[in-house]
Design a protein around this nucleic acid. Sequence first.
DNA 1: TTTGACTCTTACCTTAGGTCATAGTTTACC
DNA 2: GGTAAACTATGACCTAAGGTAAGAGTCAAA
Lengths: 255, 255
Amino acid sequence: MVKYTVKQLAKIAGVSVRTLHLYDRLGLLKPLLRTEAKYRLYGEKELLRLQQVLLYKELDFPLEEIRQILDDPKFDLFEAFATHKAALQTRKNRLEILLKTIDKTMLELKNKNMLNHEDLYEGLSKETADTYRKAAIDAYGDEVISKAENHLLKMGKRNFEQLKAEQQEIAKAIIAKMHLSPESVSVQALILRHYENIRQFWGTAHSEDPQAEAYKGLGELYLTDERYTTIDGKSNLAYAQFLSKAMTYFAETQL
Amino acid sequence: MVKYTVKQLAKIAGVSVRTLHLYDRLGLLKPLLRTEAKYRLYGEKELLRLQQVLLYKELDFPLEEIRQILDDPKFDLFEAFATHKAALQTRKNRLEILLKTIDKTMLELKNKNMLNHEDLYEGLSKETADTYRKAAIDAYGDEVISKAENHLLKMGKRNFEQLKAEQQEIAKAIIAKMHLSPESVSVQALILRHYENIRQFWGTAHSEDPQAEAYKGLGELYLTDERYTTIDGKSNLAYAQFLSKAMTYFAETQL
DNA sequence: TTTGACTCTTACCTTAGGTCATAGTTTACC
DNA sequence: GGTAAACTATGACCTAAGGTAAGAGTCAAA
């Protein structure tokens, strides 16, 4: 009957002694017995169990769940795996998006020769522009979608990027003026730029139709769905409300 | 001059008050001033800085690093991003392989109608090292290897030692599992770490090229040249064979 | 018998905050 | 002006999975 001390078992399994102490306290791996001096002694069965623990640990299961799996033979292993897989999948997707964002940002760092984080901030809030497009789509249904997207396609990539960049600038400028009234001239001047920009996205720059209601509607949409005013992944209610107010005022007085 | 209380700023930025307390204590975001009752008051600049903090946080930067980036305008942003990206990439690769492993395992659970974790555990001492003596030495050329060795020369000494130490760790962990099948999930999880390590040796961590053949080739090299599988000064043939088998299996099923 | 290696428990540290608890402050309403 | 509600401050303890260290006890070889 072979017995292992903590040090021996730790070395065999490639973990630290502290880890074995912890597993003992968590009930994840109890020693076979204790000597009268309280020394932990492990047998073959314990080594085997430890291997199993490490197996699940490699798969990123939390220790508590591992304990349940090993202690309860009726544990629904398949279910556990399925759940776990979904969690891993989510993390992977998130990492993929992060990687894309970082790639994009590094490219901008290179191209624009940006020197500090403030410029970077500008670059990343570009996502804001995308939300405007989604807003237009959701607000006006499929037929307007396709018309608008057709327009975007004809517009060409350079102009598109141009408009997006401009929107990002506008959004940043508006945020910087949120301490003023949405009806202030200073803000309304920015709203005008915002309005012109939106019209170009919509492809209705030369349309004779009244755009006032549409623009007001877009502003209200910003209020009801915070996805459209998400900045850098954080919804910004204050910004949504401010922007919406400013847009409504603009539409009522200028259009 | 607009001032925000903690609650207001928290709401605007979409974080908790506790978070602002924490950021204050960490020196990540200090309030503009304190009232005589010690209340924190933030201004526009603080709001802007908070936005930046959240931006980097979204990208998974640790808070301490964010503080450095924001406080030191000469901080090498590009370098920081590159390092960070590599870390994220490694995590993503790891998740990808874990997902494949879990898929495979779930498939086995289905097919073999396995009911508990013990069934997952294959091949207890049923296969000895002698089984692997059927070495296939002449399958792959070593032109891939010479390319790798070139890279090692270019790699700095510090990184080299780091990676070497990690390899020794992995090797010991693998040896501890040689009583299992090289194809067992438990061993394959370690092989994943080995694989990631090797890729860094090769300098191909971000390469999109298929690495399967190269990795398999390396495994077979272990069989022919015992310099590559020397542990603590002793060559270990059984380990070489075991490792080689595990690597081949890994390359064929995961890559 | 002494030394060195090993082991024990206890406890504090790490991330990025969450969740109370207690006490002081400001605002709203009557 | 008084009171109650809402807000704020600090401090403490909690999370996962251990790392690191302190202080004390134990074992084996010289």
